[in-house]
Design a binder for these strands. Structure first.
Length: 346
DNA sequence: AAAATGCACAACCGCGGAGGA
DNA sequence: GTCCTCCGCGGTTGTGCATTT
């Protein structure tokens, strides 16, 4: 009746694994595979239960584990998937093949959850929390609450749309976030553009704004000015591109274009942290590449496209662009798509 | 300099589903 | 159909290092 009794727990070692135990476990799995965890400790001459061996292998010893800092893209993916899947860490880990569910869970609990909370976003519902510590007039408060309410509605619609997109993408899941990996020039692994990209979350934009150690105004100016030192850029930069408040919106390193009445038209926001400040190329293709990576403009554009049938009013449209007579022309910039300052979704 | 606190990460624990006997 | 074990998952705890007080 039933299977044989599970491993005898008496005398089994617990706690941190030693290098010697790791070596035994590794060589055993290399030799026999990991078919039966229960039988493995005996084969490997380990005083551990099979469960402990399995955990050690899955969370630490597996050769395909990517260790180290989570990239911005990974953070985005985790937040997006958590909004859709909740605390189903193994399901989330399936979209980040080189990360373990334990690692993602730890990262969420130790960082992402706290930061979202700090931003006033409920990490479980992914919706803004309405609090009573708003300083300002009652009019300001009602505007604030109305804004949050609008954001919540927008977020709800967005989540529904995302769920549809995710369902649609399931057929292509083998391509999703599982693209071939390339070594970049810094020998860091980067994930190539996925077949299908989840849309941007507005909470992620807020996330960017709440991040600490954001690049300074001078960082952005130096990027642009260094990159265009020979392109006479400064003379073609709109008057808003200076150290005034227009460059930063709510402490976000953003560059804003305004119309002739000084009303905001569109904003680009640096999504990298820290914002890179070196090696901006001056030739157009390289610039496009660097600038696109720097501000993640393609991502914003893709997001806008994905959302265009949902809440198009929240986007001001796109600008296309290029150099003209060696001058950077905002009106022709190709990827610039985002919400304006003061938009309800911001 | 020492204690307190925060943080990141590894590991354990308990539960529930799947499936064999 | 029932019992039992294995496996995987999510919650939680433990530990060591770094930072702050």
């Amino acid at each position: 009746m039933g299977r044989s009794k599970c491993c005898d727990k008496q005398g089994l070692k617990k706690g941190p694994w030693t290098p010697e135990e790791d070596r035994k476990l590794l060589s055993c799995i290399e030799e026999h595979g990991c078919g039966s965890w229960r039988a493995l400790p005996a084969k490997a001459d380990l005083q551990r239960c099979g469960k402990s061996c399995r955990l050690r292998w899955i969370n630490y010893l597996r050769p395909d584990i990517k260790r180290g800092k989570f990239s911005l893209q990974e953070e985005r993916t985790i937040i997006q998937l958590h909004a859709l899947l909740g605390n189903r860490w193994s399901a989330i880990a399936a979209y980040l093949p080189s990360r373990t569910d334990n690692e993602i869970k730890n990262y969420w609990n130790s960082r992402l959850k706290k930061r979202l909370t700090k931003m006033g976003i409920d990490p479980m519902t992914h919706k803004p929390k309405i609090t009573n510590n708003i300083n300002g007039s009652s009019n300001d408060q009602s505007k604030y609450v109305a804004n949050l309410s609008h954001m919540a509605e927008w977020e709800s619609a967005r989540l529904e749309a995302e769920a549809r997109l995710v369902r649609r993408s399931k057929d292509h899941s083998k391509y999703l976030f599982n693209s071939t990996r390339n070594n970049n020039k810094n020998n860091n692994y980067v994930v190539s553009q996925p077949y299908y990209q989840l849309p941007c979350l507005d909470i992620l934009k807020a996330w960017q704004r709440a991040s600490t150690k954001l690049p300074t105004t001078n960082d952005i100016r130096s990027i642009l000015l260094d990159g265009f030192a020979n392109k006479n850029l400064e003379s073609s930069i709109p008057s808003t591109l200076n150290s005034s408040g227009n460059l930063f919106v709510n402490n976000v390193p953003s560059i804003t274009k305004v119309d002739d009445q000084n009303l905001p038209l569109c904003t680009i926001t640096c999504l990298e942290n820290p914002c890179p400040t070196k090696d901006v190329q001056t030739d157009l293709p390289s610039f496009r590449q660097e600038f696109s990576e720097l501000f993640d403009l393609e991502y914003i554009q893709n997001s806008a496209n994905n959302f265009s049938g949902i809440q198009v009013d929240n986007f001001m449209g796109s600008c296309s662009g290029d150099f003209e007579d060696n001058k950077f022309n905002w009106n022709n910039f190709p990827y610039l798509v985002t919400s304006p300052i003061g938009s309800p979704v911001f």
